[in-house]
Amino acid sequence: MLTCKDATRLMSESQDRPLSVSEKLQLEVHLAMCRGCSNFREQMNFLRLACRRFMQRRNGDDDGSSSS
């Protein structure tokens, strides 16, 4: 059984490499039962989205800013 601590590592690594079938399976089973970890996953997705948006704001959409 995957622990929450292990699950957070897998969720972070899933943003850096494709997980193996067995890792994915273990993670999905865990997430189905664990509210905290499914929130953690959404938070990781949010971080990635925020980083992308942050770059878009820096890169062209920041006309109003005095520093560019």
């Binding site: 622990t3 929450c4 601590k5 905290g36 970890c37 929130n39 959404e42 949010f46 925020a50």
Partner: peptide, 29 residues
């Protein structure tokens, strides 16, 4: 985490609501 490596109840991640709404807020950045 507790000794068994599961979340402590008070540390369990909670929902952050609608991402699109947050990302529209200047203060958030």
């Amino acid at each position: 985490f507790k000794d068994n490596a599961h979340w402590r109840p008070e540390a369990r991640p909670f929902g952050w609501g609608d991402p699109a709404e947050t990302l529209r807020e200047e203060r958030f950045w």
